[in-house]
Simulated scan of single mutants.
Amino acid sequence: MTDSPPDAASPPIEHESVRERLAVERGDTNGRIAALSRDFDGIVAANALVAVDDEHDPEGASTAFERAHVAALLAQTREHLADLDRALARLERGDYGRCEQCGAPIPVERLEVRPAASTCVHCAATRHR
């Protein structure tokens, strides 16, 4: 990470506005985690009430899939919450809005869509190849 000044083409980041947006998204994400946790618990409880043999029950495969699907969504949502927490930490350190890979400014448009983004579009694209 470099300590170079922001590029002239990069508008300054309004810290309070970003902090508020991250806090709102964090609250929404916590709400999704609570809802998904209730869904997961409901699926587990419903399966516990019925002696389900997933291998031989025609509905068993779909309940197993549903449980796995909700568990995956829950894990993904928890990871997003962690991303938001890391974004808040970058904001406090003064690193928010800079790519963690190359140090270039992350375009404001990307941060508006993905406020927890930690990389520029170029580095994000090369990381997923």
Rank of each mutant, 00 (worst) to 15 (best):
D7S: 06
D57F: 13
V24E: 06
H128Q: 11
L111G: 03
H69L: 14
V113A: 14
H128N: 06
R21K: 12
A34Q: 14
R38C: 09
T77I: 04
R114I: 10
A82N: 09
R38F: 10
C102W: 02
C102F: 02
A104G: 05
D83R: 13
V24S: 05
A23F: 11
C123P: 05
L73C: 04
D3R: 02
Q101I: 09
M1L: 04
G31Y: 09
D95H: 06
G27E: 12
D85F: 09
A51R: 15
V24G: 03
A9T: 04
A116H: 13
Y96P: 03
V52P: 09
M1F: 00
V113S: 06
R67Q: 12
F65K: 14
E79H: 10
E100I: 03
P6S: 07
R67T: 10
M1V: 03
H15L: 05
H15I: 04
R114E: 05
I33Q: 12
A45D: 12
V113P: 02
D95T: 02
P115Q: 07
L81I: 04
V18R: 05
Q76W: 05
A9R: 05
L22I: 07
L74E: 02
P12H: 11
V113G: 01
R90I: 03
R110E: 06
A116V: 01
E20K: 10
P12A: 14
I13P: 01
E100T: 10
R129A: 08
D54S: 13
R78C: 00
L49V: 13
T119I: 00
P58I: 15
R78L: 01
E92M: 08
A124M: 06
E14S: 06
R90D: 03
A51L: 15
A51P: 11
P5K: 09
D85M: 11
F65A: 15
D7Y: 02
A34F: 08
A71N: 11
A35L: 14
A89P: 01
T126G: 01
D53H: 12
D3V: 00
R86E: 11
G97Y: 07
A45I: 10
E20G: 00
V70R: 08
D53C: 08
D95A: 05
D41F: 07
